[in-house]
């Protein structure tokens, strides 16, 4: 090394680390945490697709939508007791949300520490969907809380009545704040899924050079279908198609 850059004290030599096996090694690794994020993300994505398709039943009238909502509680009958299947799904989703959030938080902390000094020459890095993953995720987490208080527990839904989901949906989308929160959140879902689905495929090792285009197209299709499908409901209420 050139004299000007030679350091007075030689760098300390430490032996290379050995990996830790088992669950601790898995969770302790950046690749392991990303795997947790990919799997939990795909679980939530699968749920979103089912949720979006279920929502479309609102276009077939009060009885069909409310009947569907009731079926969600009797799902698995007679093997499962009333609401058991629903609670199994809820527990699984909660585990997925917590796993996804904790891994994202820890990885983000690590990423920010790994790059403490910014470049003086600024330029935009990566796509908009990619750059908004962290804030988008936080927006979605807050929206989930609002959404549960609004249409599951009915705490913040002023005109809500128990056992009448169709009427409650109409009540939510008859307020300006109900519509605004929902529309912003659904756009965030689309952006999050667009980068998230493709990333999950890369993390799980499904991606390769030949599948690249198919995976990107699938991510865009999923993102678009979810956003349009979810947004069709408030738009229908606002335009009077559903009411």
């Amino acid at each position: 090394m050139a004299l000007a850059t030679r350091q007075d004290t030689p760098p300390t030599r430490k032996p290379p680390v050995r990996h830790t096996s088992g669950l601790r090694g898995f969770w302790g690794s950046t690749v392991g945490k990303k795997t947790v994020m990919a799997v939990s993300g795909l679980i939530m994505l699968g749920y979103l697709v089912a949720h979006m398709i279920g929502n479309l039943k609102i276009f077939f009238g009060t009885d069909e939508f409310n009947g569907y909502a009731h079926w969600l509680r009797t799902m698995g009958d007679p093997v499962l007791h009333y609401e058991w299947a629903l609670w199994i799904v809820r527990v699984l989703l909660l585990a997925a949300v917590v796993g996804h959030g904790v891994a994202a938080y820890q990885l983000s902390r690590r990423d920010i520490r790994a790059r403490p000094v910014k470049y003086a020459h600024k330029r935009k890095r990566a796509s908009y969907a990619t750059r908004t993953m962290r804030w988008g995720g936080i927006i979605l987490a807050l929206f989930i809380v609002w959404h549960l208080l609004d249409l599951t527990t009915l705490t913040v839904n002023e005109n809500a009545q128990h056992g009448k989901p169709y009427e409650n949906v109409v009540a939510t989308f008859s307020t300006w704040y109900g519509n605004t929160t929902y529309i912003v959140a659904m756009l965030a879902v689309g952006l999050h899924v667009r980068h998230g689905f493709w990333s999950a495929a890369q993390t799980l090792g499904v991606g390769n050079a030949t599948r690249e285009r198919v995976l990107k197209a699938l991510a865009n299709l999923l993102a678009l279908a979810l956003t349009v499908g979810f947004l069709s409901v408030p738009v229908a209420v606002m335009t009077g198609l559903v009411g």
């Binding site: 690749v31 990423d111 990619t130 499904v206 390769n208």
Partner: peptide, 30 residues
């Protein structure tokens, strides 16, 4: 840091190491 699949690395690489290399490594790791 960890990978968030921004793709900046593969764009900067002077030797054209492709981004799916990371997916291949993840597959090997799993």
């Amino acid at each position: 840091g960890g990978c968030t699949l921004t793709g900046e690395c593969a764009t900067a690489c002077p030797k054209g190491i492709p981004l799916p290399s990371i997916a291949a490594m993840n597959k090997e790791w799993l």
